[in-house]
């Protein structure tokens, strides 16, 4: 579904990604793991196009998207949920959702605000509240819901559990399971290994902008050495 090859990205003058490559199959939930500064966020931004990769290929479905503007990638069905949430603070919940709206896609049940409110019940109770006056957990739900309004086939979730209370993290995990049931493929960047282990099928470990390890989540759990080398301190 998503195949990345030889991705090189810069942030200003700093060379962040060095030939990153991995693939995520249809219906899978993959997780990008790695320490702060390993290049997880830059990878996510390169995939949606907020960072222009200097070289490399990103194939989505059967299209090469690495040189496309972000809006074209989104229109093709790539959904991006930013780490900083980036809620439009002066717009209400309903208005935020409306900004994300895109036409329905073949083979996927289209998202409506009402359907999203069953996925994230908290949001339904605050439809007219401005995004700037919501808690961190509520904003995290809204940013995911907003991206889902674009009816993506593939979801890029950058650190969805960051800064959330345990209860909300559980809800988030349940939501990701539900999305997978809907037929979405998902790539998440995470630092919370427990959360990752609960939702992901596949793992990609980044270290200093390079892919250090890929494999199934089960294999990662069994492999204490990899654990220790790349994820623990």
């Amino acid at each position: 579904m998503l195949a990345v090859e030889g991705l090189n990205s810069f942030y200003g003058q700093a060379h962040i990604l060095h030939g990153v490559g991995f693939a995520v199959g249809s219906g899978e939930v993959a997780v990008l793991l790695g320490r702060n500064g390993a290049g997880k966020s830059t990878t996510m931004k390169s995939l949606i196009g907020l960072v222009r990769p200097a070289s490399g290929s990103v194939r989505f479905g059967n299209r090469e998207v690495a040189r496309m503007e972000p809006f074209r990638r989104a229109q093709l069905g790539l959904g991006y949920v930013p780490e900083e949430r980036r809620i439009f603070a002066e717009l209400t919940v309903m208005e935020n959702l409306d900004v994300g709206r895109q036409p329905a896609r073949d083979g996927l049940r289209p998202w409506t605000p009402e359907r999203l409110f069953t996925l994230f019940p908290n949001l339904g109770a605050m439809r007219r509240r401005p995004g700037g006056r919501m808690s961190g957990g509520e904003q995290q739900m809204l940013t995911i819901a907003r991206t889902l309004m674009g009816n993506p086939r593939f979801l890029l979730l950058d650190e969805p559990s960051e800064g959330l209370s345990p209860l909300i993290v559980e809800q988030m995990a349940a939501a990701i399971h539900a999305l997978r049931q809907e037929g979405l493929s998902i790539l998440l960047a995470e630092q919370n290994l427990h959360f990752a282990a609960e939702v992901a099928t596949q793992a990609v470990i980044l270290e200093s902008g390079r892919v250090a390890w890929t494999g199934s989540m089960a294999a990662l759990r069994a492999d204490a050495g990899t654990h220790g080398r790349y994820l623990a301190v």
Binding site: P166, L193, F195
Partner: peptide, 11 residues
């Protein structure tokens, strides 16, 4: 898994 002591997966 929820409450993480650190910003870097060390729990």
């Amino acid at each position: 898994g929820g409450e993480r002591p650190a910003s870097g997966g060390r729990d």
